[in-house]
């Protein structure tokens, strides 16, 4: 007597339909039902931020949502950030150039968080970047490479706009 529901969702531009148990976490749905394992799970209690995805363009912790809640929604995960197979998004490139990742486990959450943040605040200070990622834990980098990457990405993304 499992409580099951149908879920239809668009992830990274692709439509999926699955029937799932209603208690299934969105994080598990994305990782194990849709097999998009780029989204990681570091705590399952809403503190580490590794599971962050973009839901209708806004960040959300996928371990704090049920899969049934995204029926009809549009989601972007780390797999959907790069413009093409061959190219990295400027933020991803900035992570690579500034050593913004080591083990890569926190990285998907950092990237999704920063994508939204840089839209909200395209020209941030270092302090603002630090606050913006303070809901994402990283045990490897000491955050410095990530902060540098975010500041570098802000410049790259603004590019033309600034004189």
């Amino acid at each position: 007597m499992k409580d099951m529901r149908k879920v239809s969702v668009t992830v990274n531009g692709k439509s999926y339909a699955r029937e799932v148990e209603t208690r299934l976490l969105l994080s598990d749905f994305i990782r194990h039902e849709l097999e998009l394992t780029g989204t990681h799970v570091g705590c399952e209690h809403g503190v580490c931020g590794a599971c962050t995805i973009l839901l209708e363009g806004r960040t959300a912790r996928s371990c704090l949502m049920l899969a049934v809640q995204v029926d009809g929604a549009n989601i972007t995960t780390v797999e959907g950030i790069a413009p093409s197979e061959k190219e990295l998004h400027p933020l991803q490139q900035a992570f690579m150039d500034n050593h913004g990742l080591q083990c890569g486990y926190c990285t998907p959450g950092m990237l999704t968080t920063l994508i939204e943040f840089l839209q909200d605040n395209p020209d941030p200070t270092e302090h603002e970047v630090r606050v913006a990622i303070s809901g994402n834990l990283c045990r490897c980098t000491g955050y410095q490479g990530i902060v540098d990457a975010a500041l570098d990405a802000a410049k790259r993304l603004q590019g033309g706009k600034r004189a």
Binding site: H40, V78, E79, I81, L88, Q92, F95, M96, L101, Y105
Partner: peptide, 12 residues
């Protein structure tokens, strides 16, 4: 290591 990890293609 980075390109795979940055695009969600890491394998843990």
């Amino acid at each position: 290591e980075d390109p795979a990890l940055l695009t969600g293609r890491g394998r843990y």
